[in-house]
């Protein structure tokens, strides 16, 4: 029997600097590895340790997997040191994917803050792949400062281009930073501000970002008419095994690794300290 902790070997094929604290590492697995948007992987730097991440690349991308990582500790620090050609490993995919089938013929609102844009990028690509299934997609992207805004090139040069948007009439973006600078041509103010006067009726909202941002976004969404069961939140907890054994990721009786990592607000609102 194959050891459940054995990672799939991956070569680092590229590293992109997103901001002063965030990098995207592009991995090429040596064997077939696929995931669905919302599922996560456990990423090993041999000799250092392992940490969970939701890939940021399209689940339809067969050649590589992007992992977008903010430097916060020992393992993420080592990930930031990785260079092209380095060997790493991934286990997974784990957790439940976003329930795309529930979004059919619906308005979808994506709200991402800071490094929280990473899983939403994977989801966005998955949605765009079958765009006709959905009524509308409003993608609200926020960050603290223009420097902290990730995937800049892709967002500004591709997604926001006339060419890209013209054939995708049901997609629109709302871009903001908490604190703008001279070179910033988009909105300013916290991301919850982008939820005022939404162009779509409240149906499904998918939120990912730092805990405080998710908290205020959830409150705001409830305020503008979203139902708790239609607000999807990406939860983060300390995690080791990723398979429901080590119990570190429990939010009350719910495992982030098995029952999540995405929960509806309805599912977790009664549990202790959900915003940590």
């Amino acid at each position: 029997m194959e050891n459940i902790y054995k990672p799939v070997k991956c070569e680092v094929s590229d590293v992109f600097k997103e901001s002063s604290t965030i990098k995207t590492v592009r991995l090429t697995p040596v064997e077939q590895f696929s995931f669905q948007a919302g599922q996560f992987i456990s990423f090993t730097v041999p000799g250092v340790g392992e940490a969970p991440f939701t890939p940021s690349s399209s689940p339809f991308e067969k050649n590589y997997i992007d992992v977008t990582v903010m430097k916060t500790g020992r393992v993420t620090g080592a990930i930031h040191e990785l260079k092209k050609g380095d060997i790493t490993g991934i286990r997974g995919p784990y957790g439940k994917p976003y329930p795309l089938e529930k979004f059919n013929n619906k308005n979808i609102l994506l709200v991402g803050g800071g490094v929280g844009l990473a899983p939403l990028r994977a989801l966005f690509y998955a949605l765009v792949e079958t765009l006709d299934n959905y009524k509308s997609i409003v993608f609200c992207c926020g960050a603290k400062t223009p420097d902290d805004f990730i995937f800049k090139q892709e967002v500004f040069e591709t997604w926001l281009s006339e060419k890209w948007l013209s054939s995708r009439g049901q997609v629109c973006f709302r871009i903001t930073v908490d604190k703008k600078d001279a070179g910033w041509n988009y909105g300013d103010g916290v991301v919850t501000k982008t939820l005022d006067g939404l162009p779509c009726s409240p149906e499904n909202a998918i939120v990912c970002g730092p805990p405080i941002m998710m908290k205020f976004t959830t409150l705001k969404l409830l305020d503008v008419g979203y139902k708790p069961e239609n607000i999807y939140l990406s939860m983060e907890r300390k995690m080791y095994c990723a398979i429901g054994q080590c119990r570190h990721c429990l939010i009350g009786d719910k495992f982030v690794c098995k029952d999540g990592p995405v929960f509806t607000y309805e599912e977790i609102k009664g549990q202790p300290k959900i915003w940590a």
């Binding site: 250092v48 340790g49 119990r247």
Partner: peptide, 13 residues
């Protein structure tokens, strides 16, 4: 409850 540690050198899992 348990945690996982990686005590290996940089070459193997």
């Amino acid at each position: 409850c348990f945690l996982l540690e990686d005590f290996s050198s940089r070459v193997s899992f």
